[in-house]
Amino acid sequence: MHDVLVGHLSVDVRASLRLFAFYLANGTLDLDLLDDIDYRPAVFEFGSSLEQVFAIYTNVLQVDVDGTVLNDGDAQYRVAQWIRARCDPNYEVEPPFQDWETELHL
């Protein structure tokens, strides 16, 4: 995949990021997977967990050439899986994360 230089994130990408941040902070990210788990202390207590959450979301998020988000639900679900595994040691992420999904970019 080639990086394309753009001036600004599209309105669709900005809206997806805003809603993702809202659901994450509100404790309502993927209620099916995270029902009855208050993940916020585990995510917000240390910056590195929050950093990882946003890395996974933005690494998985796909955008077409017009800036339209194609898979917001998939990106949120992968984050929810990572959070669930962090909060529930018995939970197994399926499929396992690939390196590119969890990579922190500098």
Results as ranks from 00 to 15, higher is better:
Val93Lys: 06
Ala80Gln: 02
Arg18Asp: 11
Leu106Cys: 14
Pro41Gln: 06
Val69Cys: 13
Arg40Ser: 05
Tyr91Thr: 08
Asp74His: 12
Asp88His: 07
Asp35Asn: 13
Leu31Asn: 07
Ser16Thr: 14
Asp66Pro: 06
Asp99Cys: 07
Glu101Asn: 01
Leu29Trp: 05
Thr28Tyr: 03
Leu5Cys: 14
Gln52Val: 04
Ala80Asp: 05
Gly7Asn: 11
Pro95Ile: 07
Thr28Gly: 07
Tyr57Gly: 04
Ala85Asp: 11
Val43Arg: 01
Tyr91Lys: 12
Ser10Leu: 07
Leu17His: 01
Gln52Thr: 03
Ala75Glu: 06
Asp35Arg: 12
Ala42Val: 05
Leu61Gly: 03
Ile56Leu: 07
Val43Ile: 13
Phe54Glu: 00
Gly47Lys: 09
Glu92Phe: 13
Ser10Pro: 02
Leu9His: 14
Leu70Met: 12
Tyr77Asp: 15
Leu34Met: 09
Glu103Tyr: 06
Glu45Asn: 09
Ala85Asn: 01
Glu92Gly: 06
Ala15Gln: 10
Arg18Leu: 11
Arg40Pro: 00
Leu61Trp: 02
Tyr39Ala: 04
Trp100Leu: 07
Val53Cys: 15
Ser49Thr: 07
Ser16Gly: 10
Val43Ser: 00
Val11Ser: 14
Tyr77Leu: 15
Ala75Arg: 00
Ala80Thr: 00
Ala21Ile: 01
Ala85Gly: 13
Asp36Lys: 15
Asp74Lys: 12
Pro89Cys: 00
Gln62Glu: 14
Asp3Met: 12
Glu45Val: 07
Leu9Asp: 12
Leu104Met: 10
Tyr77Met: 14
Leu70Arg: 08
Leu19Cys: 10
Arg14Asp: 06
Leu70Ile: 11
Arg14Pro: 05
Val93Cys: 10
Ile83Pro: 02
Glu45Ser: 15
Asp3Gly: 13
Ser49Trp: 08
His8Gln: 14
Ser49Asp: 01
Leu106Arg: 14
Gln52Lys: 08
Gly67Leu: 09
Val65Tyr: 06
Cys87Met: 04
Glu94Phe: 08
Phe22Ala: 12
Gly67Asn: 03
Asn90Val: 08
Thr68Glu: 13
Val93Ser: 05
Gln81Tyr: 04
Leu104Trp: 11
Pro96Val: 04
Gln76Arg: 15
Gly67His: 02
Val63Tyr: 09
Ser49Phe: 05
Leu104Ser: 11
Ile56Gly: 01
Phe97Tyr: 04
Tyr91Val: 11
Phe20Asn: 05
Gly7Asp: 11
Asp38Arg: 09
Asp35Pro: 05
Pro96Ser: 15
Glu103Asn: 08
Val4Asp: 07
Pro89Gly: 08
Leu34Gln: 07
Arg84Ser: 08
Phe44Val: 01
Gly27Leu: 00
Phe97Asn: 01
Asp88Met: 02
Arg14Phe: 02
Asp99Glu: 14
Leu34Ile: 02
Asp74Thr: 15
Glu45Met: 08
Val43Tyr: 00
Phe54Val: 01
Pro89Asn: 10
Leu106Ser: 13
Glu51Trp: 10
Tyr91His: 15
Asn90Cys: 09
Tyr77Ile: 03
His2Phe: 12
Ala25Ser: 15
Asp88Glu: 13
Phe54Cys: 08
Glu51Ser: 12
Gln52Trp: 05
Ala21Lys: 07
Cys87Arg: 04
Leu34Thr: 07
Val69Met: 00
